[in-house]
């Protein structure tokens, strides 16, 4: 079967209720279109994983898709709070959200361990911090060689990882560049993996050492131009900072949020229609 498929089919086939799901992309290349499609298809009970939940997880949490969130920084970058995330933690709306809170360095180590087939990531971290008191997923181990105390955190191995990249070729080999965050590790640590891309081309023309994910580690490749909007895609479009700023007032109020989501996401058929409604 060809790896190249529609986003609707890919989400239908590979994302199930109750799955642990990681949508990665560090400010750049955030897979918004895929997140929207998960909400449209009404997935529930997801254990969401993402270093920086960003607007997309704020939306998914507010729409009631998530039972758990593993994260390291839950704000609206440069703007302030993620109000839906806050409402879920502070007031349990729309329902309680279990949190597994770590730091960037430890999430990175946990994904790396997951990709490398190790049970845990190790780092110098969390000494003196209160986080280990509240999160049993942060513990300390002794180095058997030097006796040093090091922090350990269990590997992350999502049921499904989803990333957005710039290009794929017709066989489904994927190329991404710019700020690549933890995407390669997210893909290689996952049981299943979906990649949305700006465009599908005949040849990638990737230089040696470029960040290429061979088609055989990817389950589905979906062409979704603009699929990272309102984050950005280096070489294609810039981050739409205005959307991030406007999100602050839209998301503050439960009703305003629900209305906005209904009109822009739930009542549209795909990302293209979402963009049209947003711009109308």
């Amino acid at each position: 079967m060809s790896k190249i498929t529609s986003l609707t089919d890919a989400i239908h086939e590979y994302v199930h209720d109750g799955d642990s799901v990681a949508l990665e992309g560090f400010t750049h290349l955030i897979p918004y279109a895929a997140g929207h499609e998960i909400m449209r298809q009404g997935r529930r009970d997801l254990a969401l994983v993402r270093m920086t939940p960003d607007l997309i997880y704020d939306q998914m949490i507010g729409m009631g898709c998530a039972r758990k969130l593993t994260f390291s920084w839950g704000g609206n970058p440069g703007v302030g709070s993620l109000h839906r995330f806050r409402d879920a933690v502070e007031k349990r709306w729309p329902h309680p959200l279990e949190i597994d809170e770590r730091s960037h360095a430890s999430m990175a180590a946990a994904y790396t361990a997951g990709a490398a087939g190790l049970p845990m990531g190790i780092l110098r971290g969390f000494v003196g911090s209160d986080l280990p008191k509240y999160n049993p997923n942060i513990r300390f181990v002794e180095c058997p060689f030097t006796g040093e105390k090091l922090a350990a955190t269990p590997a992350i191995n999502p049921d499904v990882s989803i990333i957005h990249a710039q290009k794929a070729d017709r066989k489904g080999n994927v190329l991404l560049w710019g700020i690549v965050g933890v995407q390669k590790e997210a893909v290689l640590s996952a049981k299943r993996c979906i990649v949305t891309v700006e465009e599908i081309v005949d040849t990638l023309n990737a230089p040696p050492n470029a960040c290429v994910l061979p088609s055989w580690v990817v389950d589905a490749v979906c062409e979704v131009p603009g699929g990272a909007f309102p984050s950005y895609s280096d070489g294609y479009y810039d981050r739409d900072n205005a959307v991030y700023i406007e999100w602050d007032s839209i998301s503050k109020d439960r009703d305003a949020f629900s209305e906005w989501m209904k009109f822009h996401v739930m009542e549209t058929n795909n990302f293209e229609e979402f963009r049209e409604r947003l711009e109308s």
Partner: peptide
């Protein structure tokens, strides 16, 4: 930059590395 990962930072940097690499 408005965000920690704005394109402006990547375009003007000497090197752009992955998240595991920057911390480790």
């Amino acid at each position: 930059p408005l965000s920690i990962g704005d394109g402006e930072l990547a375009e003007t940097a000497d090197a752009v590395v992955s998240t595991p690499e920057i911390f480790a």
